[in-house]
Structure formats: C-alpha cells, structure tokens
Amino acid sequence: MSADTNAVSLKFGVVVFPGSNCEQDVVHALHLLGHEANYVWHQDTELACYDAIVLPGGFSYGDYLRCGAVARFSPVMESVIAYANAGRPVIGICNGFQILTEAKLLAGALLQNRNLKFICEPASLIVEKSVCKWLDPKLAGSVLEVPINHNEGNYFCDAKTLAELKENGQIVLRYRQAANGSLDNIAGICNRGGNVFGLMPHPERVCDFATGSTDGRAFFSYIFRYILEIASNTKNNLNKNGSLNSDDLNSDDNNIIGNVEVAQ
C-alpha cells in the first residue's frame, strides 16, 4: 500500500472492451493511489469480488455506430448493471460515461462536440454539491483541473430530465468555461443513488506528479468511505429494489465485505 493519500486499499475492476485505450492509465493511477486493480475482460461477468468498477475511456468497438452503443451489449454490462443496481460503485470515464448512458444507468446522451472537432485540452471543472459518492462533499464549490479528450462529449438530456438531475443533486461537475457545447456546461453526472458516476474529463491523467498536476486523485481517493459504509451494512439493508437506501449506510456494524482492508 502506498503511503500516499489512502487509508484503505481497494480492489478495482477495470473493464476492457475491444477498443478501450485508457484502461492501463486507470490502472496506473489506481496503483499510484495504493489500490489494487485488475482488468475485467468484456466477456467476463464475475464482478462481485471488486469493491468498485471502472469503465475506462477509449473507442470501444471503434465507436462506429454511436459511442458506447455496441459495448453496452457486451456480456459484462449485464453484470455492471446488476452491480450498479445493488448500490455498488461504478465510475465511467469518457467512453465509459457514454457506455453508461447507452446502458441507461445514467440519464441523457453525449452528442458530437459543438465545434465538430475532437478536443484535447485542460479543463477547469466546478465541483457541484451533489449526491455523488465518489467525491468528498467538502469539495463542493472548488475547482479541479482535469483534461478533456473527446469528440462526443456534448451532454444532452431533455428539459424534464435536466430538472430532475438538478432537483436530485445529480449534476456532479460543470465546465467553468463552455467546452464542447454541453447542456448547462455539464461535465459529469451521477445516478440518484450517487453510486454510478459518469464524467467526460480524464482524472486518471492527472494523478501522477511526473506528468503534471494531481487533481485527479480526488476522484479515486474518497470512494472508500462509501465502500466501508456498504461493508458495514449487512446485505439485509438492501431495500426491495436491490439498491441501497442511503439512510441505511450509517450503521455501526463493522462487518467488512468485498476486499476492503483497513490500513494498520
């Protein structure tokens, strides 16, 4: 375990679709943060052993039909959907975000950038006050510098959905300056439970001092709290829908599930 920022080492599953190309970067970033990370091939379906799942960036299936449209039907996605619906943490970065919207785990869709060009550049992100479990609530209102790198990052949803996202605190990140034409400058959203988080920027690219800033660490170093919370709740606390009720997550029970290990 690295002495870096984490008190807890988690075991992440990083899904690899044909055409994914940021999976190694995610694994590298997670290792830097002292986590364990395994690649999960898109045909594997066993996810229970992981504390959290990452859908990394890239061009799954060439993104030929629509970004994420084909990957969404990979065998692993049935398991990801079940995993997410069980209240366990899933993060989709860039292409991963696109796949999560295609899989309807997150609302809306990602359109082509307004300027019709691929955009790779640093972006200033405002952290919104949200229900997202992946970021420390104390970060709300602060600005993180995380690069974007996409051709289809222009977030869209209908007015009703947007109102719901706002009402439920599901808008997690906004671009400080308009970047790609995104509705309301949205850069990242989560589901109602806050356990499924999708964002276009690439936090894994800014975790290593050797290559620049480390603002990206915030995205992988807080989720352990939520995982400990789930761990400390027995499975009986799952509500009837199979998803976790956030009120149930404050139990004093110290049972640990998954592979969470507490630092000595």
Partner: peptide, 8 residues
Amino acid sequence: QYDHQVGN
C-alpha cells in the same frame, strides 16, 4: 485535435 496524453 490530437489526444496527446493517453498513456500517462
């Protein structure tokens, strides 16, 4: 227009 950072 080029991804110049992938690979970390």
